[in-house]
Amino acid sequence: MNAIVEYIKEVLGGVKSLLTGLSVTVKYFFSPGEIVTQEYPENRATLKMFDRFRGNVYMIHNEQNQHTCTGCGICEMNCPNGSIEVISKTIVVDDKKKKALDKHIYRMGMCTFCGLCVKSCPSKSLAFGQEFENSVYNRSDLTRILNKPNSTIAIKQ
């Protein structure tokens, strides 16, 4: 007799536990307001990334198309993947020869977005953008030159 009582208890307990599970899902079934999905291409206009989001690396330019990069190459040295290449040139300022940036080549295809270049830059000329739609049709498009054409170095105040 005891065994039968145990058996019935087991069955009822099992059914109860199943019903508790069902109660959770039915709750969500009747509350479509809980839907959390972001419908991405539609919400482009409202989609805002966080300030510190690590998107593409870019060089900060001011309105006069000037940047602060001195071409020192610390970012190149700090990059663990070799995705940055700094090519410098010599310019003459006030009859003095000076090292300046010629091309700041950034290969996004090799970048792991660790942030060491941005953090180590002594003149704070690099920054992370908010761009995250980085797919391109051609792999060479991932190699970018960060300093804009004809940009010059900003004179320190």
């Binding site: 899902t25 969500y28 079934f29 479509p32 809980e34 839907i35 959390v36 999905t37 419908e39």
Partner: peptide
């Protein structure tokens, strides 16, 4: 649709 709504998806 049913499974989507249960799983908080559209």
């Amino acid at each position: 649709k049913v499974c989507a709504v249960i799983q908080n998806r559209p």
